[in-house]
């Protein structure tokens, strides 16, 4: 699932929680941080039961699913391929600087 999909689900849950429970959440952090998102999922399910709000539980499920969803196949590459490409893409090392007298050792000027 793409990041923008995760963000859309998080935004929807943010609005529901605010409207039904008064709880204010951080939408972007919810889409980025798994621990925070899991805690919001737990809280949403708890309030869904207590307040009889099935839509909260539904969007909590969606967020949890998004958290555990695998990245798109096109983005997956063998580690060795990625490492090799990174090495090839590495810029050439800069030329060795001329050896300098250490600054401020034995005199300020």
């Amino acid at each position: 699932m793409s990041d923008s999909d995760k963000l859309a689900i998080a935004a929807h849950l943010h609005v529901l929680l605010r409207r039904k429970t008064g709880r204010v959440t951080d939408t972007e952090w919810m889409a980025a941080n798994a621990d925070y998102a899991q805690e919001i999922v737990r809280f949403a399910r708890q309030r869904a039961t207590e307040d009889n709000a099935p839509d909260l539980a539904e969007w909590a499920d969606r967020l949890e699913h998004a958290l555990h969803a695998s990245p798109p196949a096109a983005q997956r590459r063998p580690l060795l391929d990625a490492a090799a490409q990174a090495v090839r893409a590495r810029p050439a090392p800069p030329p060795e600087p001329a050896p300098e007298v250490p600054r401020y050792v034995g005199g300020i000027r």
């Binding site: 250490p102 600054r103 401020y104 050792v105 034995g106 300020i108």
Partner: peptide
């Protein structure tokens, strides 16, 4: 430390 370490202004 004079002559061994830098005395940064």
């Amino acid at each position: 430390g004079y002559g061994r370490e830098p005395f940064e202004p």
